[in-house]
Amino acid sequence: MNIFRFAGDMMHLLSVVVLLLKIHKMKSCAGISLKTQELYALVFICRYLDIFTGFISLYNTIMKIVFLASAFSILWYMRSHKVVRQTYDKDQDTFRHYFLILACMVLALLVHHKFTFREVMWTFSIYLEAVAILPQLVMLQRTRNIDNLTGNYVFFLGTYRGLYMLNWVYRYLTEVHYHHRWLTWISGFIQTALYADFFYYYVKSWRNNEKLQLPA
């Protein structure tokens, strides 16, 4: 494992920790899209179908369990916790995420490397992850006062896939028998590019020491 991959994983982990911190300590999920969280839970379920059968490393297995467990605890907090669920801005979270699921499933059935259940579900998870942030980005744009934790959450999440792309380039250059797939590269690029606008305003607000606000 190279430094880019590890740093990417740590950013991903950090984003989840920041979100759970906000929810658990502040007892608030204001500004967080439940739809994006539902999509991530679905992404992890479909990607990690091999969690108990395809052992790669202890690190991988533990991280998979952490991502699955954190995704479901976030969903539980947002939907069932008596205090947290009342801070959820349902009216601002209007993205029709079922269309994303449907579109990604159709695409995975049409464009994949191998037509097996495991492989199509894995491909579906790659496509869905690329666009899962969209409901959250739409919600951010509608939120007038984005708190620091929410801004950092999205920033870490965007940085994670960006670092993964550097990891792919590094592996391509250094591994002799390298079999990475173009499907992952394109999806990963789209996923990272979706954050470009957000990154611009995030860095700008940070440099000017202002509160983060996205233009409507």
Partner: peptide, 10 residues
Amino acid sequence: SHDHADKDEL
């Protein structure tokens, strides 16, 4: 080539 590098990633 069944051992794909993207399968050992998260």
